[in-house]
């Protein structure tokens, strides 16, 4: 009986020592979040917290949403992750906490959700996400890559997350010989991690338009539209057109924005929209005012034997 106590203590010791954590909390955080974050294709950024080059110190003892990361989950469904940081108080350095939370809505309401992973006791945190490769204080920050720098137990650490599907440039500037790929890290190649046994069930995209739709039959679908003052009245959705899209000359004063339809471009044919000539070229051809929708307008051109005419909202050929 007298050996029972030491035996139990020994058993407890063996159990504890065999199961002790093999990796640090920082490594665990990094390894857990890396496969989730690298599929990010869009980022909600706050300029207050990004690329500050000095540690975040305000507001103390408060959780701030550093970034919202729109990624793809294992089934190619959209998934948003929110990176939160509890800013430490100067007097109590152990309060700093970094955590990643998954959300189905927006990051603003998710502060109290259970985190996927977290690190406690950190300080002097900075995050970097640049549109171009950047060197700051002899440190290289590659574009479209999220860097999280911080100190824990007086040791500096940097966690690097390449955002493979992310292109920071919202509007590409194309030049001669430009290709059409996005400016992401893998130059047009996109990725998504999954486990082998998971069946792929992608959400079908709601496409717009049918092959047989024509302007004459009044069943062409508008995929981008503006009012007379050039204010956008229907958002751009031409990337969802099932069979391509084309521009027409609308009845407004917009120089650079044109009405767009889904479907086949049969411009220039009788009864169909006129082909868009472009504002500068139309001026060369005698355009009278910014609104190009009028009889014999040079804002558009037609096939041989036809002329332009305004059909309500669209310049057509008659």
């Amino acid at each position: 009986m007298k050996y029972v106590f030491p035996v139990i203590i020994l058993i407890n010791f063996i159990l504890f020592s065999s199961c002790i954590r093999g990796i640090s909390k920082i490594d665990y955080f990094y390894q857990k979040t890396f496969p989730l974050i690298i599929s990010t294709y869009n980022v909600d950024k706050s300029e207050l917290y990004l690329n500050t080059h000095s540690p975040l110190s305000r507001p103390p003892s408060t959780f701030i949403n550093l970034v919202g990361l729109h990624s793809l989950d294992e089934n190619f469904k959209k998934k948003t992750y929110c990176l939160f940081y509890k800013v430490p108080q100067k007097s109590n350095k152990s309060l700093g906490r970094l955590q990643l939370i998954s959300t189905k809505k927006s990051c603003q309401n998710e502060i109290n959700s259970k985190p996927i992973a977290f690190i406690n006791g950190i300080q002097e945190l900075m995050i970097h996400l640049n549109d171009e490769d950047t060197i700051v204080e002899r440190k290289m920050f590659f574009k479209n890559t999220l860097y999280i720098e911080f100190k824990k137990d007086e040791e500096s650490r940097t966690l690097v997350f390449p955002l493979y599907n992310y292109s920071s440039k919202k509007k590409e500037t194309f030049k001669r010989f430009s290709t059409s790929f996005n400016d992401n890290i893998l130059k047009g190649i996109k990725i998504s991690m999954t486990t082998r046994d998971l069946e792929l069930i992608p959400d079908p995209i709601k496409t717009i338009g049918e092959y047989s739709d024509t302007y004459l039959n009044h069943n062409l679908k508008i995929c981008h539209n503006f009012d007379k003052r050039c204010k956008e009245i229907s958002k751009y959705s031409c990337n969802k057109c099932k069979f391509g899209w084309f521009n027409v000359v609308g009845n407004n004063n917009c120089k650079n924005t044109t009405l767009k339809y889904c479907g086949r471009n049969r411009c220039g044919e009788k009864g169909m929209p006129a082909c868009v000539r472009g504002h500068e070229a139309a001026l060369k051809m005698g355009l009278e005012n910014n609104n190009g929708c009028y009889e014999y307008s040079p804002a558009g051109y037609c096939n041989v034997g036809l002329r332009t005419s305004c059909d309500g909202n669209v310049l057509i050929c008659l």
Partner: peptide
């Protein structure tokens, strides 16, 4: 683990420079 990849066929098109 699987990594699903989408390779964009960006080599077959070229940009028509913006000009008159």
């Amino acid at each position: 683990y699987n990594l699903r990849l989408s390779f964009k066929n960006s080599c077959r098109e070229t940009f028509l420079p913006k000009r008159i």
